[in-house]
Design a protein around this nucleic acid. Structure first.
Length: 555
RNA sequence: UGGCCUGUAGCCAAGCGGUAAGGCAGCGGGUUUUGAUCCCGUCAUGCGAAGGUUCGAAUCCUUCCAGGCCAGCCA
């Protein structure tokens, strides 16, 4: 091992941090991951988690986990628990205690008062529709609210009444007084506070006014001493407001205050990252739940068999930039395969079984035990015991009655094949049912080919996997395909119409006996089939297919 | 002539005036008891387009084209 740290790929945010540190703008960096607890985290959040926590690690700084909980009508404790679990599972730890924007509700209120006193905020009684009309359009300036010139004294009293619950929901809002003609829409006197008589998962019924994102976020960052506030591209306009609030609040208008930088969110082919739409899939029961292995959620990917390391590696491979991009699924799959290829124990599972009777094997019911490597490229992983006998199962796809072409490397009548970790067999004949489906295959084996090639020098090209019949353990296999049939389902008017009807295929087959001990999240390679892990919910033996092996030969 | 942002290979992405990194995918070959892995080789006379500045431009300037985001009392 060398002690030079692994070089992380450069990106524009690292360049900014390097420059800030070089100028002594900050002594060290402090980032934050600020999810709203209104749904489960997905692979797009994982990108942000890896960025924020990863930066803190690499620069020996800090990273907070902060729940951005300013809208009690959409949030729930179920989500805060799942988010904590997912962040830890990904391998990250937050600095200090978990933060909540709601921790700062008192302070937000005081800062709102400061703006009111400075004549920079006012209570507006325009209703939602009127507010929209007054806002103008992208090309036309808005017009001032009739409540815009209320005195600070009156606004102070009005805002106190709002807090005291003396106005009904929707009656009024607190607004910043900025510029109704600004070309940046969010600067046209944005709302700071709205009235919501809603129970909050952290503050209970203490408040009936709740701050808006733009007001709360920058102040939360400033309070926590965040240096680099990283968010996605759609917040680029909001940066104007972010800076405006910090400019006008005495506590924060200082050189070392936080700055917001935006990077592009992750888009992955054949799936989507919209929390609202993922919510809909769950609510409409089109998937099993947030942790359905077909979902791009962290909990779904965990159940599917993705390791934390593979997700971190994926985040590193796609990088950070400001380009609105669509990432190829192959990059994700390559990341898991690279991890599992090194770390997954090898085993054999027959997904679509068909029985093979070895005609020249003793009929006395004896079976033999063979030591097979757990990993052919890594002896230190040891060996496991497999079995061989007169009756075995192979996969239906590994037999053709008549060898179809020269390239065919599997079993056929009068064609030899190597049984992985065991003997060479030769197909002799097969039984069929009335419909012509093959029911049993008969073969002979060469007893002198265990662990070695035939002495007579003949070459046997193909290798197929098998499980000895009497020791085989029944198992269910769940094979997954992309959730959607189109590259960018989020663009569809009705994304549910474009769901892949074949995204889940269930098969019943057999595995090696040792797999009854398999635990969820331990990835296995079923040789020649792909990577699987035991399902973390099923009571019986169920294996979820994480990803297949690369297959270049039939493309 | 509303504002902001972005265009480098099929996909992701470095590059910041000195002559196009890397990964994924692809292609060709070698090893192999997984059609896997591994190994070797190959893959942009070109950086959205056109002009210009310069000894020299993906990098600077001008114009144009394409795409994304913004009109929640959501985040």
């Amino acid at each position: 091992m060398s002690d030079t740290p692994v070089e992380k790929p450069v990106n524009f945010i690292r360049n900014i941090i390097d420059a800030d540190l070089a100028e002594n703008k900050h002594d060290s960096i402090h980032t934050r991951f600020p999810p709203e607890p209104n749904g489960y985290l997905h692979i797009g959040h994982a990108k942000s988690i890896c960025l924020n926590f990863g930066l803190a690690q690499d620069y020996k700084g800090q990273c907070n986990l902060r729940f951005d909980d300013t809208n009690p009508t959409k949030e729930d404790m179920e989500y805060v628990e799942s988010i904590k679990k997912d962040v830890q599972w990904l391998g990250f730890d937050w600095s200090g205690d978990i933060c909540y924007s709601s921790n700062y509700f008192d302070k937000f209120y005081q800062y709102a008062m400061e703006l009111i006193d400075k004549g920079l905020a006012y209570v507006c009684f325009l209703n939602a529709e009127e507010t929209r009309e007054y806002r103008g359009t992208l090309k036309e300036a808005g017009k001032n609210s009739p409540y815009r010139d209320t005195t600070p004294e009156e606004n102070r009293a009005l805002f106190e009444k709002m807090k005291a619950g003396e106005f009904e929901e929707g009656k009024c809002v607190l607004r910043a007084k900025i510029d109704m003609a600004s070309p940046v829409m969010c600067m046209r006197d944005p709302a700071l506070y709205r009235i919501r008589f809603a129970h909050h998962h952290q503050t209970g019924d203490a408040w009936c006014i709740y701050p808006m994102y733009d007001f709360a976020h920058c102040i939360s960052d400033a309070i926590e001493g965040i240096t680099h506030s990283l968010c996605t591209l759609e917040f680029q306009d909001n940066r104007r407001l972010y800076d405006w609030f910090l400019d006008h609040l005495e506590d924060f208008n200082k050189p070392d205050r936080p700055h917001q930088y935006e990077f592009s969110r992750l888009n992955l082919e054949y799936t989507m990252m919209s929390k609202r739409k993922l919510h809909q899939l769950v609510d409409d029961k089109l998937v099993e739940g947030w942790d359905d292995p077909r979902m791009p959620t962290i909990s779904g990917m965990r159940r599917r068999g993705y390791s934390p390391a593979s997700i971190r590696d994926f985040a590193e491979r796609v990088g950070i930039s400001k380009v609105d991009s669509m990432t190829d699924m192959a990059i994700l799959e390559a990341a898991v395969r690279d991890d599992l290829n090194v770390n997954a124990p090898r085993t054999m599972g027959v997904i679509d079984p068909i029985k093979v009777i070895i005609e020249n094997y003793p009929e006395n019911g004896s079976i033999e035990t063979i030591d097979a490597p757990v990993h052919p490229q890594n002896e230190s992983m040891g060996t496991r015991q497999i079995h061989f006998g007169r009756e075995i199962y192979i996969d239906r796809a590994d037999f053709e009655e008549v060898k179809p072409n020269k390239k065919f490397q599997r079993l056929a009548i009068d064609k030899e094949v190597r049984l992985r970790n065991a003997y060479i067999i030769n197909g002799t004949r097969c039984d069929k049912d009335a419909d012509g489906n093959i029911t049993t295959i008969y073969a002979t084996y060469d007893p002198d080919t265990l662990g070695k090639n035939p002495e007579d020098g003949r070459k046997v090209k193909g290798v197929i996997h098998f499980v000895e019949a009497s020791k085989a353990v029944p198992a269910e296999f769940r094979l997954y395909d992309r959730l959607f049939t189109v590259e960018n389902p989020a663009k569809e008017d009705d994304f549910e119409a474009v769901l892949n009807p074949n995204s889940l295929e269930i098969k019943h087959g057999f595995v090696e006996p040792a797999l009854t001990q398999a635990t969820p999240e331990q990835g296995y390679q079923f040789e020649r089939e792909g990577y699987f892990c035991r399902d973390n919910k099923a009571d019986t033996l169920v294996f979820n297919k994480t990803v297949g092996l690369r297959e270049v030969w039939n493309k």
